[in-house]
Lab assay of single mutants.
Amino acid sequence: HTVDVQGVTYHFDNPEEARKFAEEMAKRLGLQVHVKDGRYKVE
């Protein structure tokens, strides 16, 4: 499970961890979480 944050890619084994990380980063950076091709993108 992959999370892209402003061009940096993070990998997680656990989909729940990936989702939480994406939401946390989006909140911290004031950005949105998009799901695209099964990847989380924070932009």
Results as ranks from 00 to 15, higher is better:
residue 14 N to K: 12
residue 14 N to P: 02
residue 10 Y to E: 01
residue 9 T to E: 13
residue 18 A to Y: 00
residue 7 G to T: 05
residue 34 H to V: 14
residue 2 T to W: 15
residue 6 Q to E: 11
residue 37 D to H: 06
residue 4 D to Y: 08
residue 13 D to Y: 09
residue 16 E to Y: 11
residue 39 R to Q: 15
residue 34 H to S: 14
residue 23 E to V: 13
residue 41 K to W: 15
residue 40 Y to W: 13
residue 22 A to I: 01
residue 1 H to L: 08
residue 19 R to W: 09
residue 25 M to I: 10
residue 4 D to I: 07
residue 29 L to F: 07
residue 15 P to N: 15
residue 22 A to W: 00
residue 25 M to W: 13
residue 43 E to F: 09
residue 37 D to F: 04
residue 27 K to V: 09
residue 18 A to W: 01
residue 36 K to W: 06
residue 30 G to A: 04
residue 29 L to H: 05
residue 11 H to L: 12
residue 25 M to R: 06
residue 26 A to F: 02
residue 42 V to C: 05
residue 11 H to N: 11
residue 34 H to Q: 10
residue 13 D to V: 11
residue 24 E to L: 14
residue 4 D to G: 05
residue 3 V to C: 06
residue 34 H to C: 13
residue 16 E to R: 09
residue 18 A to M: 03
residue 11 H to C: 14
residue 3 V to H: 00
residue 25 M to F: 07
residue 34 H to W: 08
residue 43 E to T: 09
residue 9 T to G: 05
residue 27 K to G: 07
residue 19 R to F: 09
residue 33 V to M: 06
residue 39 R to Y: 14
residue 27 K to W: 10
residue 38 G to V: 02
residue 2 T to P: 14
residue 13 D to N: 12
residue 4 D to A: 06
residue 12 F to W: 04
residue 7 G to I: 02
residue 31 L to I: 04
residue 2 T to N: 09
residue 14 N to V: 09
residue 27 K to Q: 11
residue 39 R to D: 15
residue 29 L to M: 07
residue 2 T to A: 14
residue 16 E to S: 11
residue 4 D to C: 09
residue 21 F to C: 05
residue 24 E to K: 11
residue 11 H to Y: 13
residue 12 F to I: 02
residue 19 R to E: 06
residue 6 Q to F: 12
residue 24 E to P: 00
residue 4 D to M: 07
residue 5 V to E: 00
residue 37 D to C: 15
residue 17 E to S: 12
residue 4 D to P: 01
residue 1 H to G: 12
residue 1 H to Q: 09
residue 3 V to G: 00
residue 3 V to S: 01
residue 23 E to A: 08
residue 20 K to C: 15
residue 30 G to C: 12
residue 43 E to K: 05
residue 19 R to D: 03
residue 11 H to V: 13
residue 36 K to G: 06
residue 8 V to M: 11
residue 3 V to Q: 00
residue 28 R to D: 05
residue 38 G to K: 05
residue 8 V to K: 13
residue 16 E to M: 10
residue 8 V to C: 14
residue 2 T to G: 07
residue 41 K to D: 07
residue 30 G to I: 03
residue 34 H to F: 14
residue 20 K to W: 10
residue 18 A to S: 05
residue 31 L to G: 07
residue 31 L to H: 04
residue 21 F to K: 02
residue 20 K to P: 02
residue 7 G to E: 05
residue 31 L to N: 02
residue 8 V to D: 07
residue 11 H to I: 13
residue 14 N to S: 12
residue 4 D to E: 14
residue 15 P to Q: 14
residue 33 V to W: 09
residue 21 F to V: 03
residue 36 K to H: 14
residue 42 V to L: 10
residue 31 L to F: 08
residue 23 E to G: 07
residue 40 Y to S: 03
residue 18 A to D: 00
residue 15 P to I: 08
residue 9 T to S: 11
residue 1 H to T: 14
residue 24 E to S: 11
residue 22 A to K: 00
residue 7 G to Q: 05
residue 35 V to A: 05
residue 31 L to Q: 04
residue 3 V to I: 02
residue 37 D to W: 03
residue 16 E to P: 05
residue 29 L to E: 02
residue 27 K to I: 09
residue 19 R to P: 02
residue 25 M to Q: 11
residue 6 Q to I: 14
residue 1 H to P: 10
residue 32 Q to P: 06
residue 35 V to Y: 15
residue 40 Y to P: 04
residue 36 K to P: 01
residue 20 K to D: 10
residue 9 T to M: 13
residue 30 G to P: 00
residue 18 A to F: 01
residue 36 K to M: 12
residue 11 H to P: 05
residue 41 K to G: 05
residue 22 A to P: 00
residue 26 A to E: 01
residue 24 E to R: 11
residue 3 V to A: 04
residue 4 D to L: 08
residue 27 K to L: 11
residue 32 Q to S: 13
residue 30 G to L: 04
residue 39 R to K: 15
residue 39 R to G: 15
residue 18 A to N: 00
residue 29 L to W: 06
residue 6 Q to A: 08
residue 37 D to M: 04
residue 32 Q to F: 11
residue 25 M to S: 08
residue 25 M to G: 03
residue 13 D to C: 14
residue 22 A to V: 02
residue 8 V to W: 10
residue 22 A to L: 01
residue 5 V to Q: 01
residue 25 M to C: 15
residue 23 E to Q: 11
residue 6 Q to G: 08
residue 31 L to P: 00
residue 33 V to A: 04
residue 19 R to Q: 08
residue 10 Y to S: 04
residue 10 Y to M: 04
residue 23 E to H: 15
residue 5 V to I: 07
residue 5 V to W: 03
residue 42 V to W: 02
residue 35 V to C: 14
residue 2 T to H: 14
residue 15 P to F: 06
residue 9 T to N: 07
residue 43 E to R: 06
residue 34 H to I: 14
residue 10 Y to A: 03
residue 39 R to T: 13
residue 9 T to Y: 10
residue 33 V to D: 00
residue 11 H to G: 07
residue 42 V to Q: 01
residue 37 D to P: 03
residue 9 T to K: 07
residue 34 H to Y: 14
residue 22 A to H: 00
residue 13 D to G: 10
residue 11 H to W: 12
residue 12 F to E: 00
residue 37 D to S: 04
residue 17 E to K: 10
residue 7 G to C: 14
residue 31 L to C: 08
residue 1 H to Y: 13
residue 33 V to F: 06
residue 33 V to E: 01
residue 41 K to F: 15
residue 21 F to G: 01
residue 14 N to R: 10
residue 41 K to S: 15
residue 21 F to A: 03
residue 5 V to G: 03
residue 28 R to E: 08
residue 23 E to Y: 15
residue 17 E to N: 11
residue 37 D to N: 09
residue 5 V to L: 08
residue 39 R to F: 10
residue 39 R to I: 15
residue 2 T to Q: 13
residue 33 V to N: 02
residue 37 D to L: 04
residue 42 V to M: 03
residue 38 G to S: 04
residue 1 H to K: 09
residue 6 Q to P: 03
residue 4 D to R: 06
residue 41 K to Q: 14
residue 28 R to F: 08
residue 36 K to V: 15
residue 24 E to G: 09
residue 29 L to I: 03
residue 13 D to I: 10
residue 23 E to R: 08
residue 14 N to A: 11
residue 29 L to A: 03
residue 43 E to C: 15
residue 41 K to C: 15
residue 20 K to M: 13
residue 16 E to K: 09
residue 37 D to G: 06
residue 26 A to D: 00
residue 29 L to Y: 07
residue 25 M to T: 11
residue 43 E to M: 08
residue 31 L to Y: 07
residue 9 T to F: 12
residue 14 N to W: 09
residue 13 D to S: 12
residue 41 K to P: 04
residue 11 H to E: 10
residue 17 E to I: 09
residue 23 E to W: 15
residue 33 V to I: 07
residue 11 H to D: 08
residue 11 H to F: 13
residue 43 E to P: 03
residue 41 K to A: 10
residue 34 H to M: 09
residue 37 D to K: 05
residue 43 E to A: 08
residue 40 Y to E: 03
residue 6 Q to H: 08
residue 3 V to D: 00
residue 5 V to D: 01
residue 34 H to E: 07
residue 4 D to V: 07
residue 43 E to W: 08
residue 38 G to L: 03
residue 20 K to F: 11
residue 14 N to M: 10
residue 9 T to I: 14
residue 27 K to S: 10
residue 4 D to F: 08
residue 7 G to K: 05
residue 21 F to W: 07
residue 32 Q to A: 13
residue 30 G to S: 06
residue 16 E to W: 12
residue 6 Q to L: 15
residue 6 Q to K: 09
residue 20 K to G: 09
residue 35 V to L: 13
residue 22 A to M: 01
residue 11 H to T: 13
residue 18 A to G: 04
residue 40 Y to M: 07
residue 42 V to K: 01
residue 20 K to T: 13
residue 3 V to F: 01
residue 20 K to I: 12
residue 19 R to V: 06
residue 31 L to S: 04
residue 1 H to N: 12
residue 14 N to Y: 10
residue 33 V to G: 01
residue 40 Y to R: 03
residue 40 Y to T: 05
residue 7 G to D: 07
residue 26 A to T: 02
residue 25 M to L: 06
residue 35 V to D: 05
residue 6 Q to T: 09
residue 28 R to T: 08
residue 38 G to T: 04
residue 10 Y to R: 04
residue 14 N to D: 12
residue 23 E to N: 11
residue 43 E to D: 13
residue 2 T to C: 09
residue 22 A to T: 01
residue 23 E to L: 13
residue 16 E to V: 11
residue 29 L to T: 04
residue 6 Q to V: 14
residue 24 E to F: 14
residue 33 V to L: 06
residue 1 H to E: 06
residue 38 G to H: 05
residue 14 N to I: 08
residue 8 V to Y: 12
residue 30 G to T: 04
residue 3 V to P: 00
residue 3 V to K: 00
residue 2 T to E: 14
residue 33 V to Q: 01
residue 38 G to C: 14
residue 31 L to V: 06
residue 24 E to H: 11
residue 22 A to G: 03
residue 6 Q to C: 15
residue 16 E to D: 13
residue 28 R to K: 12
residue 40 Y to I: 10
residue 12 F to L: 04
residue 29 L to K: 03
residue 9 T to V: 14
residue 13 D to W: 09
residue 35 V to G: 08
residue 17 E to M: 11
residue 25 M to P: 00
residue 40 Y to L: 10
residue 5 V to F: 05
residue 1 H to W: 11
residue 19 R to K: 10
residue 19 R to G: 06
residue 16 E to H: 11
residue 42 V to E: 03
residue 21 F to H: 03
residue 18 A to K: 00
residue 1 H to D: 07
residue 8 V to P: 00
residue 13 D to F: 10
residue 22 A to D: 00
residue 17 E to P: 05
residue 20 K to S: 12
residue 9 T to L: 14
residue 33 V to K: 01
residue 12 F to S: 00
residue 32 Q to I: 13
residue 36 K to L: 11
residue 12 F to T: 01
residue 28 R to V: 09
residue 15 P to T: 12
residue 28 R to S: 08
residue 26 A to Q: 01
residue 11 H to A: 10
residue 30 G to K: 06
residue 39 R to W: 09
residue 12 F to P: 00
residue 18 A to Q: 04
residue 11 H to K: 11
residue 42 V to A: 02
residue 36 K to F: 07
residue 31 L to T: 04
residue 36 K to Y: 07
residue 37 D to R: 04
residue 18 A to C: 08
residue 15 P to R: 13
residue 27 K to D: 08
residue 34 H to K: 12
residue 5 V to A: 06
residue 3 V to R: 00
residue 35 V to S: 06
residue 15 P to V: 09
residue 15 P to D: 15
residue 13 D to E: 13
residue 32 Q to D: 06
residue 24 E to W: 13
residue 30 G to D: 05
residue 1 H to I: 09
residue 17 E to Q: 11
residue 2 T to D: 13
